[in-house]
Each structure stands twice: as C-alpha cells, then as structure tokens.
Computed example of a mutant assay.
Amino acid sequence: MYINSTGYYIPEERVDNNHFLNVNGLTGEWIEQRTGIRTRSKAGEHENSNTMGIAAIRNAVPGLPYPIEEVDLIVSACYSPYDTVATLAHVAQKEFNIEEAKALYVSSACSSFTNGLEVVEGYFAAGKATKALVICSEHNTYYSNESDPKCGHLWGDAAVAVFISKEPQREGESEILEVVTRGLATLGKGPEGVRLRPKEDGIAMPEGRDVFLHACKYLVDALERITRNRNMTISDLDYIICHQANKRIVANVAHQLRFPDERFLNNIEELGNTGSASAMLVLAQHIHELKKGTMVGLTVFGGGYSSGGFLVRI
C-alpha cells in the first residue's frame, strides 16, 4: 500500500502541567517525571472530533495526486467520536462529495488507526477498493475527567488523515510494507485496564500499572512481528514511533531494544496522549524530513487490550 498524502490538525490551545495542581493535586514536576508530558493540546470550544478530522483532510488534499472524488473507501478509526451513528467517515464523504466511496467506522482503543489500515489492506486484497482515506480524530478532552489523578492529566486532542492507494500514484511515494494487529483481551486486566463510559466516569485507567507492563512488552512484540514478516530485524529500522501514551514506556522500549533516544520520534512532551492518532501523527509531522529509503516502525498498544504495528519505507 502506498501513502499518497498525509495531513493533520492540532488545536492551538496548550494546557500546562501546572493547571492540574488545583484540579487533581498533582504537581507539574510529578506529571513530567512520571509521563514526560509538559503540555497537552486541547480542542477549542467550537471544535470536536469531526471538525478536527475535516481539517486534517483539508491539510492533506493539496498533496493528493488525484481528485479526492476518486477515493472509494473512507475509514474513520478512533475511540472518541463526536457521533457513533453519523460517523466522521460519513461526514467526510458528504463534505468532500465522495459519492462512490464505502464509509465505515473502526474502533480498537489506541490501536484503532492501525486496525483501520488493516481494514484497508483487506478491501484492497479483495478487489473492493483501490484508493482509501483513513481518518483518525481523537477528542480525548471531551470525554476525560481532569480531576481523576490516575489519568485526567494525560490527554490531548488531534487528528490525522492519510490517503492510501493499492498501486503507486506517482514516483517516490512512501510504502506501507506490513501491518499487524492483535487482540489481547485475555491478558492481565484486559477490558478493565482502560475504559470509556461517557455516562459514568469518562475515560478512566483504573489499572495503570497493568497497562504499563503489557504496553512495554507488546510494543516490542509488534515491532518484532512487522520486521520478521519482512525478513528483517528491529535493528534494521532507522526510526521507531511508539504510541504516545507515556514517555517512560518509550524509554522502556528503548532500553529493551538498546536503541538510542534519537532513533525514537515523539511529540508527547507538547501534545500529551493523543490516543490512536498519536503514532501516525508523529510520522505525518516528520515524513517530509526523512530521507528516501528510511525504514520506520510504528507500534501501538491500546486498552481492551490490543496491539499492532506497521512498517513504512519512506
């Protein structure tokens, strides 16, 4: 699969760590030490996951080598939608008049974007689509409870959009070489590790330590799987992008792999945990800076539990 164009949207507002001292009793120093987060992005009063997703698509359209109307598959992949019936995929179809496209919604916690890629891969393999748009827009602050000392200080908002084709559309396009996903609900606390129940307590992470331990293991596992499937090893990767949940998790992965920090691309310090958008968002922010032939491994872990990864050759 080939990446035809990428775009993203990050809200302007930043919430500093010091904001939480009077909200959940945590000092800015404690938050940064435990998470690596200094600020987090926050959607404005009149923004939501749909508006951010549409803005990300608009950011990608100028780089698209074909009319957007040629897209025949639209996948909205996230866990914090504005509407679960009229999904972002349907809103995008209407907004850009993409009449012939299939439109659907996929959710698997913070693995959602990667699962969306695998859905596209399946449609391409079945011959039912040739050009796809995957949109991931997470409005975490809409659902989060800032007063929760376990996770209320983690969340940021952002959206990323990626146009993908079965065949290359022009010379020099980046290629998605491998996609893997995996349900892990039988491990540890499973579905109780992280949850989102809007009418109860919003986004909650009652089992943070369990999440941490399994994330550290299965982020590496996904990297091993995507490289092994291509007869590579993790050491062949030029860069790694982890799901931006916690900088300590990234540091643990780096320690396990004996990779230097400069081979990890991150944005968590400024944006916080932007959910399933986070890994692809980091790549979209850097993709035009990377040299031709660069191999990037992206790995994710989500509540539920779930994991996944994908391999990109620039």
Rank of each mutant, 00 (worst) to 15 (best):
residue 1 M to L: 10
residue 3 I to E: 00
residue 6 T to G: 01
residue 7 G to A: 03
residue 9 Y to D: 05
residue 12 E to N: 11
residue 13 E to M: 12
residue 19 H to S: 09
residue 21 L to P: 03
residue 22 N to H: 11
residue 22 N to A: 06
residue 25 G to P: 10
residue 28 G to H: 04
residue 30 W to T: 06
residue 32 E to Y: 10
residue 34 R to G: 02
residue 34 R to A: 03
residue 38 R to H: 07
residue 38 R to F: 09
residue 40 R to Y: 12
residue 41 S to M: 15
residue 44 G to P: 15
residue 51 T to E: 12
residue 52 M to Q: 15
residue 53 G to C: 10
residue 60 A to W: 07
residue 66 Y to D: 07
residue 66 Y to E: 07
residue 68 I to E: 04
residue 73 L to A: 02
residue 74 I to K: 02
residue 78 C to D: 12
residue 80 S to N: 07
residue 82 Y to L: 14
residue 84 T to D: 10
residue 86 A to L: 15
residue 87 T to R: 10
residue 88 L to R: 13
residue 88 L to F: 09
residue 90 H to M: 11
residue 98 I to Q: 10
residue 99 E to Q: 14
residue 101 A to S: 12
residue 116 G to M: 03
residue 124 F to C: 01
residue 127 G to H: 13
residue 127 G to W: 04
residue 130 T to R: 10
residue 131 K to C: 05
residue 134 V to K: 14
residue 136 C to T: 13
residue 136 C to M: 04
residue 137 S to C: 13
residue 139 H to R: 15
residue 140 N to W: 12
residue 140 N to A: 14
residue 141 T to I: 13
residue 141 T to H: 12
residue 142 Y to N: 11
residue 142 Y to E: 04
residue 144 S to Q: 12
residue 144 S to M: 15
residue 145 N to I: 11
residue 148 D to Y: 12
residue 149 P to T: 14
residue 150 K to Y: 08
residue 151 C to N: 08
residue 153 H to D: 07
residue 154 L to M: 05
residue 156 G to Q: 10
residue 157 D to N: 15
residue 158 A to F: 05
residue 159 A to M: 02
residue 159 A to Y: 03
residue 162 V to G: 01
residue 163 F to L: 00
residue 166 K to Q: 10
residue 167 E to R: 06
residue 174 S to I: 01
residue 175 E to N: 05
residue 177 L to N: 09
residue 179 V to P: 08
residue 184 L to Y: 06
residue 186 T to C: 03
residue 188 G to C: 12
residue 188 G to Y: 11
residue 189 K to Q: 15
residue 191 P to F: 13
residue 192 E to D: 14
residue 213 L to H: 09
residue 215 A to M: 03
residue 215 A to H: 02
residue 215 A to I: 02
residue 218 Y to R: 00
residue 222 A to Y: 00
residue 223 L to I: 02
residue 224 E to T: 14
residue 228 R to M: 15
residue 237 L to G: 02
residue 238 D to K: 08
residue 240 I to L: 08
residue 241 I to P: 04
residue 241 I to N: 00
residue 242 C to V: 00
residue 245 A to E: 00
residue 246 N to F: 01
residue 250 V to Q: 01
residue 255 H to P: 00
residue 255 H to E: 10
residue 256 Q to G: 12
residue 264 F to Y: 07
residue 264 F to I: 01
residue 266 N to V: 05
residue 267 N to F: 09
residue 269 E to P: 05
residue 272 G to V: 13
residue 274 T to C: 04
residue 274 T to Q: 03
residue 274 T to K: 01
residue 280 M to E: 04
residue 281 L to P: 04
residue 283 L to C: 02
residue 288 H to E: 14
residue 290 L to P: 06
residue 294 T to I: 09
residue 298 L to P: 00
residue 302 G to T: 01
residue 303 G to W: 01
residue 308 G to T: 08
residue 309 G to W: 03
residue 312 V to S: 04
